[in-house]
Amino acid sequence: MAAQGFRPVYHPAGHDHALRGAVQELRTGRWVVMARLLDETSGWTAWTRRTQVLAAVAAGTDVVEAWRIEQPDSAAAGVMHARVSVERAVRAHRTGHPRTRELWQEAWTACLEAADRAPADPVPWVCRLALSVLDAQQRMEEHRAAPPAPMLPSGPWGLLAEAEKRDPYNREAHHRMLQFVYARRPGPLSEAVNYAQWAASMAPVGSALHALPLYVRVERYRRERGHERALDLHWVAEDAVRDADRAMDAWFLFCATDEASLLDLSHLAHGLYGALKFPDAARVFEALGPYWTPQPWAYRTDRPDERGPAEEVFLRARARCLGGPGARGGP
């Protein structure tokens, strides 16, 4: 798909067509397809991903509340209530909304209720990890537990352990933990680098956690624009190439790419492209198919808040990799 005129599609459901249908129904104010989809979802990986996407769409509506009224005993509805409550609290925190503390308390309570109703589900614990970014000063005891290894910061390690007890190497749980590390100490990223490398080193072959260091490298690039580094060299540095290679060899080559996170695929394609590994990047662009995500491509532009420039960078990188010498043909 390196043909001229190609335009990528951004959709939170990506390759998950069943999820796409549920999202569409949600946007029209109906919850039945969402409930049916979650009832049919097997495996915590798909469950975590689908509830996250659905909550991001439902947070601006009262659809989940309507579902809970109709089916008050539904554990899935309770989990989605926690998801939506957390999404609202995090958004309020991000914008400095005056109701942030109230929404935070409501979300925390919803997480406790969901964990009590669905004790085997990792998502209520992932949700509590998501809330930890609201406590960057670590005032709550559960957010200042001792780390499991040297060179790691104190933080909500007990919450991470509870999520991992239910779903080892849960992708979102570790990304939420990384967000907490960012919020805990803005500035130097040494703690985030240490955390991402530690998480990746503990992960088995095929785990998406091998892509986690690529996110930290993008964050470093975002923060250092115009400062110390020659930005073009940022991606070909020895450690950058190593991170991209490890994500390729330990995750991508073993994962079901049609079930993989579009963000993970985008970060890997971006890292390989920056490392000048165009044939490997081509394989990842092929796995993305018609889809893309604005991040991390937006950070290579002067207008990172606008989608248009990011899409242009993505398309140039994609065309270079799929059309370059040694690149595989598109599907």
Rank of each mutant, 00 (worst) to 15 (best):
Q179F: 01
T48G: 13
E311P: 02
G323V: 10
R171E: 11
L276G: 03
R166M: 13
G226F: 04
R49M: 07
T61Y: 08
R20D: 14
Q4R: 14
G226I: 03
Y291D: 09
A208K: 05
Y215F: 14
N170E: 15
Q179M: 07
Q138F: 01
W297N: 06
A13Q: 03
V79E: 10
P309H: 13
A247G: 14
H175K: 06
H234N: 04
H97L: 10
L152D: 06
V313S: 10
T61F: 08
A13H: 00
E219G: 03
T28K: 11
N170L: 09
D245N: 10
C255M: 08
A256N: 12
D280V: 00
P147W: 05
R320M: 14
V236G: 00
H174E: 10
A200P: 00
W235V: 01
M202Y: 09
D135A: 08
L54W: 08
P148T: 06
P186Q: 08
D239C: 01
A146C: 05
V241P: 00
G329L: 15
G330S: 11
R128H: 05
A2R: 12
L231G: 02
S201R: 14
A298L: 04
D243H: 05
P304G: 09
V205E: 15
Y182I: 03
L209C: 01
P8Q: 14
R50N: 11
W198C: 06
P148K: 09
A317P: 00
A196I: 00
E259S: 11
L38A: 06
E311T: 13
A92G: 07
E191T: 04
V241N: 02
R307T: 11
A92V: 09
G206H: 00
